[in-house]
Design a protein around this nucleic acid. Structure first.
Lengths: 309, 309
DNA sequence: TGAGGACATAAGCTGTGCTTATGAGCAAGG
DNA sequence: CCTTGCTCATAAGCACAGCTTATGTCCTCA
């Protein structure tokens, strides 16, 4: 099955929201797991004990499984409850990342730390960093702007941002930089593709002569690939978002080239497999950048510290 | 800050649910992004167009950012909307994994494919596999039981499960097996720990003589580590869940040893960093197992196919 | 045996999100 | 030029989910 440009994930089974408890209920479950008592969990979330009791009960009805063992001296998770709690935790963590990003986005105008970042970093890394930053400096207001490398540089130079993150090859003029992480482009295919069974690495020549699913011309990912192959990348499909590229690759349309940051989940669930490549430099540094001579202080410095450890 | 046994993640900022839109709204946003129209998205989710309109609007109010550009011939995401949609997608994907797991759990009694799996696999891999299986065979009812290797073997031999997944070193007697993936134990520390800056790999001796944060005796993870070190692992803390081990390591209590499946997120957000190790075999095969001579057919065979590609 | 913690139950209120019905803007075709 | 059809927005009414307060029951410990 081949997907047209713009389409994304496969058939959404409508009604997910009716089969999965809402965020409040999941948070409550985590609190119960952690505190060992419905009442204490309720107090922590600022609701009353009967509300918590009823909420857990309706969640159990919804899932058709007992989640907690109630006893007169507290509540503990059942085996099924422990499993469900772990799945719930992943939803809540994703929600925390959403919240961290959204808070940054909201603050735009009236904030103290203004961050500009390239798409890949803003999507996959920044939310996690912002959660960590908030743990360290809870009352910092962060604003976030996402764009390509040139836009990030422009913001910094116009003093409309305090700290930037870019994934390009070259650092724009007028900026100082520090490498904060490394990313690598990898070749992935659906598990059924012939390349999935290869043991011998692909050569640069093979890669350049095979049509690939790629991001559009001008994207950072595409630039790095073309630089590595000497400008010879041949597109099988050109899609405008990382997600669309992933979805096409998963559906078996062909091999794709993507940042490893973007496909962690797909690789562990084996919806995609990585194909070894030889003789091509697909590594790229992820850099923090700032206006020359204006190394960030305060919260910006802290954020920088968090990214480098 | 050192955490006592049983405690888990850090202070939950109460009220996440009030700052993050609910699952229905996020699904709607994804549908709008994919279909390019509020009305079409509404129809797909089985609600009316005004309901969708109002829901998106209230989500924009909640986040304080415009998400979609409405025009008389459709709606497209704004830049901020594209970013928010990507964060939303991760929540929805986590919810799909939850749902896949929960459906399996629910079906216990009256199902056609009965799966038994070890904790790590049930938590981190099975939900993804089950999503893929449902795409392929939508009306298969799956039941799931999680336990240790011995429990999995017991279920299979008693004909109470059709297919099992284990992560132990040895395959229990009476079972046939196929390797479906590989997992690796890795040593991780908080970024501030001295080991985080090491370039030279740790030796087996160093690892064995340093107190580590570990799962409790008897867990699969602990067994593999002790086998690799000749039974010499020294616990600094012994915690009863993978999550508690992660939380302690993140908070800087010391180095921990964990499955790489469990720490993908923490590594990319650099809340944890991986420390190279030399001369110790920490790889372990993840195997599908079934009763000798009863190689799974039908949905079980399909699931097996999905895990191996 | 009585005090205090745990969870459950009941009754009442409020707010959110749905529905139907309608209006307004823009594009393309007879 | 005016109709048809698509878009989204607004308004009014209804229903249910989830909260609160008030109470009941069970167990444990002093």
């Amino acid at each position: 099955m081949l997907m047209s440009k713009g389409e994304e994930t496969a058939a959404p089974v409508a009604g997910l929201a009716h089969r999965v408890p809402d965020l409040g209920a999941l948070e409550l479950l985590l609190a119960v797991a952690r505190l060992g008592s419905l009442g204490r969990a309720a107090r922590e979330l600022g609701i009353t004990q009967p509300a918590a009791s009823s909420r857990i009960r309706s969640m159990e009805r919804q899932l058709g499984v007992a989640l907690v063992d109630r006893s007169p001296r507290g509540s503990r998770l059942t085996d099924a409850g422990a499993l469900v709690t772990d799945w719930a935790r992943r939803i809540v963590e994703a929600a925390e990342a959403f919240d961290a990003g959204a808070q940054a986005l909201r603050g735009r105008r009236d904030s103290r730390l203004r961050v500009a970042a390239s798409m890949t970093i803003a999507e996959y890394l920044l939310p996690g960093w912002l959660i960590a930053l908030r743990a360290q400096r809870p009352d910092t207001a962060v604003s976030l702007l996402a764009g390509n490398s040139a836009a990030v540089a422009g913001r910094l130079l116009a003093d409309e941002a305090d700290l930037g993150f870019v994934e390009g090859l070259a650092v724009p003029a007028g900026l100082d930089e520090a490498v904060v992480a490394h990313d690598r482009l990898i070749v992935v295919t659906a598990p059924g593709h012939p390349w999935a069974r290869r043991r011998a690495p692909l050569s640069a020549g093979e890669l350049a002569s095979t049509p690939l699913i790629l991001r559009e011309e001008g994207s950072g990912t595409r630039q790095v690939l073309q630089a590595a192959l000497g400008g010879l990348a041949r597109p099988l499909l050109e899609l405008s978002s990382t997600t669309a590229v992933k979805a096409s690759a998963v559906s078996g349309a062909g091999p794709a080239v993507l940042s490893e940051l973007a496909v962690g989940e797909e690789l562990s669930a084996r919806r995609l497999v990585s194909v070894p490549v030889e003789g091509v430099r697909l590594d790229r540094a992820l850099r923090a950048v700032w206006r020359t001579g204006h190394r960030p202080t305060g919260p910006g410095r802290d954020l920088l510290g968090l990214t480098r450890g």
